[in-house]
């Protein structure tokens, strides 16, 4: 990746930093000692089962709630200061829209309020709202409303864009178009943080995936690393002749083995080493396939393992 325009001094500073941030509601620890940095230009997915603390984390990040302890900084300042300076655009699941106004009027308002706004026409166009600019906001479909929220989040030159379940209510085509637009934002050097429960979106779009569980950071890495961490490559092959099960069980890095007649299915933490050892046994596997676990399976494996550990 080539970084050009950004000033060297600011490029090093994290866009977002959480330091030992905790937030509890009564006995429930929604965010529990969270520490993380987001660097400029990253596209980061925030994953976690329901109740993992995703929304609380985003609320703390945006200054909509105050942490019980720890500090949240955006570009070295408080979330409120960063928002007031027009550094942050956000699309909230719970964010409502003003009623009895047209799409264009609402977008124009948010552009007027933004210290570093883009021209209204450009914002409407990018969000695919030009055709329905004159429509009343309270007459929109769910997908159209999401596009309006997106327009509000990208009304100006923000350094950080925060999206909470942005594609909820969109069909597949709209979702693809949405992410294409989001890509442009990321390519323009903006940092994008999005929470989603569509794991394929995280897999396809994010440079980095954060897995949150019970308010704590369970995993932090690329989608591939997360999958690897979950013990996450699947090996399958067929063997001719009798299958020597103990020999197969002795293969290195194996996390699961399933033999069905001549068909063998295994999971490995290091598929390369496992396959290498398989040939080392003098076996000749046919129809060999090595495939990554989907992020979804990796995610389930990770959170289940954590559930089991803490139970």
């Amino acid at each position: 990746m080539t970084t050009t325009a950004a000033a060297p001094t600011t490029a090093r500073a994290p866009v977002v930093s959480f330091e030992h941030v905790s937030k509890a509601y009564g006995d429930v620890r929604a965010v529990d000692g969270l520490t993380l940095d987001l660097r400029p230009g990253e596209t980061v997915a925030l994953l976690g089962p329901n109740g993992a603390g995703k929304s609380s984390t985003l609320d703390l990040l945006l200054g909509l709630r105050t942490a019980d302890s720890g500090t949240v900084r955006i570009l070295g300042t408080s979330p409120q200061a960063a928002i007031a300076a027009g550094r942050v655009g956000a699309m909230l699941q719970t964010g409502g829209l003003m009623e009895d106004v047209t799409v264009e009027e609402l977008v124009r308002l948010v552009c007027d309020l933004h210290p570093r706004a883009h021209p209204v026409g450009e914002v409407l166009d990018r969000a695919g709202l030009t055709q329905i600019a004159g429509r009343m906001v309270n007459k929109l479909s769910g997908g159209q409303e999401q596009r309006v929220r997106f327009a509000l989040a990208t009304a100006g030159a923000n350094d950080l864009i925060v999206l909470d379940e942005p594609t909820t209510g969109m069909d597949v085509t709209a979702r693809q178009a949405f992410w294409a637009t989001m890509r442009e934002q990321a390519d323009a050097g903006r940092t994008v943080l999005f929470a989603t429960h569509y794991l394929e979106e995280a897999d396809a779009i994010a440079d980095r995936v954060l897995v949150l569980h019970k308010g704590r950071l369970l995993a932090d890495g690329t989608a591939a690393e997360i999958k690897a961490k979950a013990g996450a490559r699947r090996i399958s092959f067929e063997l001719e002749g009798p299958v020597d099960e103990p020999a197969l069980r002795s293969l290195p890095f194996l996390s699961a083995l399933d033999i069905n007649g001549h068909r063998v299915r295994a999971q490995s933490h290091d598929a390369d080493a496992t396959v290498h050892a398989l040939y080392g046994l003098g076996l000749y596997p046919r129809a060999l396939e090595v495939a990554g676990l989907g992020l979804e399976q990796a995610f389930v494996a990770l959170t289940e393992a954590e559930e089991a550990r803490t139970a």
Binding site: L92, T94, G96, L113
Partner: peptide, 17 residues
């Protein structure tokens, strides 16, 4: 109504205090 619908929340994310 605007508090309930989250418009106030959305507006808090603009530069307007």
């Amino acid at each position: 109504k605007e508090r309930e619908k989250g418009w106030v929340r959305q507006l808090r994310l603009t530069a307007l205090p």
